[in-house]
Nucleic acid binder design. Sequence first.
DNA 1: CGGTTGATTCACT
DNA 2: GTGAATCAACCGA
Length: 214
Amino acid sequence: MTTTLGAFYTGRPTEEITRDLLGHELIYTTPAGTMSGWIVEAEAYLGEQDTAAHAFNGRHTAANAALYDAPGTIYIYVLRGYYMLDVATQAAGTPQGILIRGIEPHQGLDLMRQHRDKAVPEITNGPGKLTAALGLQSKALNRTMLGAQNLTITPTATRQPRQVVATARVGVSDGSWHDRPLRYVVAGNPYVSASRKRDWDRVNHGWVAPAKID
DNA sequence: CGGTTGATTCACT
DNA sequence: GTGAATCAACCGA
């Protein structure tokens, strides 16, 4: 059987895919070095019906065309000067997707610091922050597939969340879907955006087991 | 072609 | 917690 990386992103509801994506590792390879991190926060956007989605009501423009592409296609857009990283889910023509909102750095933290001079966890605890840390400051990869260039996400989880919590999406205050629990986070992880210090799991960061020593 | 708008972040109080 | 910066993209004229 042929398994493509994109196969992970279709065949079941986008909510389920989004929840499942926590613990997968985002890996960006550049001439200066490799940077990677475990996904700790992500949001599902469910297409034409979703009042908060870019494809709400069938909106289809040059800027959001990636959402209509094959599952596993990278969707990058700029919001208030910040680059956002999404992955298209579902078959081509069904414009659903996942916004990556937080990663826990694994490889290349020093390189991330060169791109974004902040202490942990502020370096990658938001959607615009993590792209800045990676130095992903262009739309060059928009509408390309994960794994086709120098940005990929592991097809399976490399760490397992102890508990996943679903909440309303951040920055979605209007529309009938504003309360839907489509944001998934690794409970207790410090790299979850706007998380409280007192809620952090300082020992395992909300994972079932500590990271392996490479 | 100009006014408006965010799936945000940061510096303040 | 609140306000302001910021800018590509959208939309109506």
